[in-house]
Design a protein around this nucleic acid. Structure first.
Lengths: 251, 251
DNA sequence: CGACTTTTTGAGTCTAGTCAAAACATGTGG
DNA sequence: CCACATGTTTTGACTAGACTCAAAAAGTCG
C-alpha cells in the first residue's frame, strides 16, 4: 500500500488581531444577533471583551462557575467532558461566530463541559449580567437563543442515537461527514477537513480508542474513501461514506 | 437462587378525567409558568387542549410537523428515536408537569423524536402560535423555557459521556438511579420505580440489548442491589449502585 | 386454567478494547 | 540539509465485553 507524505498543506491564519471591524462582523453573524440593526450590534459589541488563547489551552473547565458567554472569533474550539478515569469525551467543535459556555441565564450555575482551544484562537466573552441586559433590551434575541440551544439538543440526541446503535466504523464515518459539513474545504478530488485533529480526537468523537479508529481509518484509506496523515483528513468519497453510515458495511 | 413472585403491587391511578382544577395545577407547576400569577395561569389554561392517550399509543412520530407543545398531565410518556433498522433508542421519560415536543418557536420544523405513552396518559397541548403569543405576552417565560431546554441539553450530554465510556453494567446502574430519582417511591427496605418498564425498555435506555441487560440485572439481584420482576424494579442498595457507576465493578 | 409475554439462561461469535512495539512524520539545531 | 528527538500513527497479538440465535422458564391476564 502506498503511503502518502503530506499531500496537503494546512495553512493557518494567525489571529493576533481582533480588530473592531472584525468583532462587529463576528457578533453580527451570530444566529441570535444577526437580525439586529447595526447600531444595536455596535452597542452590544461594547459589552464583549476579547482574549487570545493558544492551541491546547483551556478556556474553562467543567465545574467552573459559569460567568461568561463566549464567542469564537477566530480559530476552533472543542468542547469535551472528562470522565473520572481521565478519558476525554468529545461533545462539539466550534468555529467562526459560534457561541459556547453554559450561561447562568440559562439556568445552570457551572459549566458542564471543558472548552479547549483546538487551534490558536481569538475569543470574545460577555458577562452573564451584561448578556441578561441584552436579553431584556431585545426580547426577540431570547427566542433566537432558544432556537440555538434547541438545535444543539437535537444534535446531541442524534449522537446518543449513534452511540447506541452504530459500530465504530459507522460512527467514524459519521463524525468525518459532520466535520466535513462544518469545516470542509474542496481541494482537488476531495474535501479537506480544515482542522488539525489527531486519531485521539477522533476516538473521543466516536467514543472509541485511538487504535480502533486508526484501524478503521486504514481500512477507509485502502478502500479509497479517505486520505489522511498526521492530524489531517481528506474525504475522497462522500457518497460511499454516507452509504456506509446507513448500511453499516463497506460494500 | 430464590425467585420472587411479584412482591410489589404497582397501582395505577386511572386518569380518565382532566378536571379544570387539575389542569390548572399541572400548568401552574411547569418550571416556566410557575412564577406567574393565578390569573395568567388561568388565561394560559384556555389555550391548552386535553387529550387522552392509552399505554403504548404514539402521541407523535419523528418527522411529524412540530405544531404543538405538549404537557404530561397524568401518566408517563417516553421519548425515543428509531434507527433505520427499527431499533428504539431511549431519550427521556417524562411525567407530571413536564413538557415535550420540539416547538416551531424553538426553531425546528419537525419533531426529532417519537413520543409514546408508557402508561395511560392525559396530555395537554398548545399550538405553536398560541405558545408564541404567551411568550410575547410574558417575556420572562421565554427565559425560563431557555433554562429548561439548557438543562435537557446538559442531561443529554451526560448520556453521551456515559455511552462513550461506561460498560453496560455501569449504564444500567446509572439508568436505574436516574429513574429512581425521578419516579422512585420508598417501599419498605427499597425504592420502587413507579413505572412499568421492560428489559427491552432498559436496553433502549442503555444502548444495549434485552439479553445483556437481563444478565446484568440477574447479577444485580444476586448481589442484593435490586429486586425485580416482570416490568418492575425495586432498588435495594442505592449506595452500592452509585459506587458501581463510578468504579465500574461489583465489589 | 391455558395462551401469551416477558425474562432468563446457554452456547458460540465477533467487535472493539488493552498492551506493546515498530514505523512514520515533523520540527529543531547542528 | 541531514540526523535526531518527539509526538503521532500503525500494526500485531491477545482478551473480554457484549451481541446473536435459540430454547427454556417464569409471570400475567382473561
Amino acid at each position: 500500500m502506498v503511503r502518502l507524505k503530506s499531500p496537503i498543506r494546512l495553512d493557518w491564519v494567525d489571529p493576533a488581531a481582533c480588530s473592531l471591524e472584525y468583532r462587529l462582523k463576528i457578533i453580527g453573524r451570530l444566529p441570535f444577533f444577526k437580525h439586529l440593526p447595526a447600531e444595536a450590534i455596535s452597542k452590544i459589541n461594547g459589552l464583549f471583551h476579547d482574549h487570545e488563547v493558544s492551541a491546547d489551552e483551556r478556556i474553562y473547565f467543567e465545574g467552573d462557575e459559569a460567568k461568561y458567554l463566549y464567542l469564537v472569533a477566530m480559530g476552533k474550539v472543542k468542547l469535551v467532558r472528562n470522565t473520572d478515569s481521565g478519558r476525554e469525551v468529545f461533545l462539539d467543535i466550534l468555529h467562526g461566530s459560534e457561541y459556547f459556555g453554559t450561561l447562568t441565564v440559562f439556568g445552570e450555575r457551572v459549566h458542564a463541559e471543558t472548552a479547549i482551544a483546538q487551534t490558536d484562537c481569538c475569543i470574545l466573552q460577555i458577562s452573564s449580567e451584561d448578556f441578561e441586559r441584552v436579553l431584556t433590551e431585545y426580547p426577540d434575541v431570547t427566542r433566537k437563543v432558544l432556537g440555538a440551544v434547541s438545535k444543539r439538543l437535537t444534535e446531541s440526541q442524534e449522537v446518543v442515537k449513534q452511540l447506541s446503535t452504530y459500530t465504530v466504523e459507522q460512527r467514524t464515518a459519521s463524525a468525518l461527514l459532520r466535520l466535513a459539513g462544518k469545516l470542509g474545504e474542496v481541494r482537488g478530488q476531495g474535501v479537506l477537513i480544515q482542522l488539525p485533529f489527531s486519531r485521539q480526537d477522533l476516538a473521543a468523537m466516536t467514543g472509541s480508542t485511538m487504535e480502533t479508529v486508526s484501524r478503521v481509518m486504514s481500512r477507509f484509506a485502502e478502500d479509497g474513501l479517505v486520505k489522511s496523515g498526521r492530524k489531517w483528513v481528506t474525504i475522497m468519497d462522500m457518497k460511499r461514506l454516507e452509504e456506509l453510515v446507513k448500511k453499516g458495511a463497506v460494500n
